[in-house]
């Protein structure tokens, strides 16, 4: 079976600054939810942009489904961080979701029946179909997030990438988002970048820590040393009332 993601010795620089250093990473399973945590400025968004082919690493090799990112567009769904978006933009929910079909429809062609079907299905998956004629500015933050997920789903992806999908959502909306992702991960590989440590403890199947270097052990437990190396300070993860613990129980060192 083809690996979903394969990164070999990937380095990314902005000017003289190294953002990603010697990243080796493999994702084999075609479903499941991987959480990537790390501090702000740790390269999480950059990591996603490398996977999307938006950024070329100056060294190393990136493959999605055995092909370079530019060749696997119709297999990848992307939900960007929507800070700084112009929500006053004259575009309806329906039009936004249809743009997720561009990689299938092709240049200069009109949207076909199957594109409209896919958009409709995607909107129904996120339970936003009844809002299809609304302008995106007339939605709540949580609804908007669902529309962006629907846009990514309209592509019919095998890999879904989300950049801080929980930011700006209240706890109730976050909960709904995670339940949606738990459903989606049955059918595709989902990678979520976040700095919300409590969320990852419940919903994710695997965790990676990223702060210039990537710590990943193909499991949902992270050794405390990795977490502390990532955040470069002692991290205390309190998981009261939560059925799973991210951290192994660790000895008091002091």
């Amino acid at each position: 079976m083809e690996k979903v993601i394969e990164l070999k010795d990937v380095w990314v620089r902005y000017g003289t600054q190294t953002i990603l250093e010697a990243i080796n990473f493999e994702l084999k399973e075609p479903n499941g939810l991987l959480g990537i945590i790390g501090p702000n400025g740790g390269g999480k968004t950059t990591f996603l942009k490398v996977l999307l082919g938006l950024l070329k690493p100056y060294r190393g090799n990136v493959k999605l489904f055995g092909k370079p990112p530019e060749k696997s567009r119709e297999l990848v769904g992307y939900v960007p961080q929507y800070k700084g978006f112009d929500f006053d933009f004259p575009i309806s929910v329906w039009e936004v979701v249809l743009t997720g079909r561009m990689s299938h429809t092709g240049f200069l062609k009109k949207f076909r029946e199957e594109d409209k079907k896919a958009a409709e299905e995607a909107l129904k998956t996120v339970e936003m179909f009844q809002y299809r004629d609304r302008q995106i500015g007339q939605l709540s933050g949580g609804q908007r997030q669902r529309v962006f997920i629907a846009r990514a789903l309209a592509t019919n992806p095998k890999l879904l990438l989300l950049d801080e999908p929980n930011s700006g959502l209240d706890p109730h909306m976050q909960d709904e988002l995670y339940r949606l992702l738990s459903r989606l991960k049955q059918e595709m590989a989902v990678i979520m970048v976040t700095h919300d440590l409590s969320a990852v403890s419940v919903y994710v199947d695997k965790i990676a820590c990223l702060n210039r270097t990537l710590h990943y052990h193909n499991s949902r437990e992270i050794p405390v040393e990795d977490l502390e190396a990532t955040y470069q300070c002692p991290v205390e993860l309190i998981a009261h009332g939560i059925p799973h613990r991210v951290l192994k129980n660790h000895e008091e060192n002091s």
Binding site: L54, E70, R73, P80, F89, I91, T99, M102, F107, R151
Partner: peptide
């Protein structure tokens, strides 16, 4: 006009 980055991701 709506989302340049997503346009690239869609392969345009």
């Amino acid at each position: 006009c709506f989302d340049e980055e997503f346009t690239t991701v869609q392969g345009l």
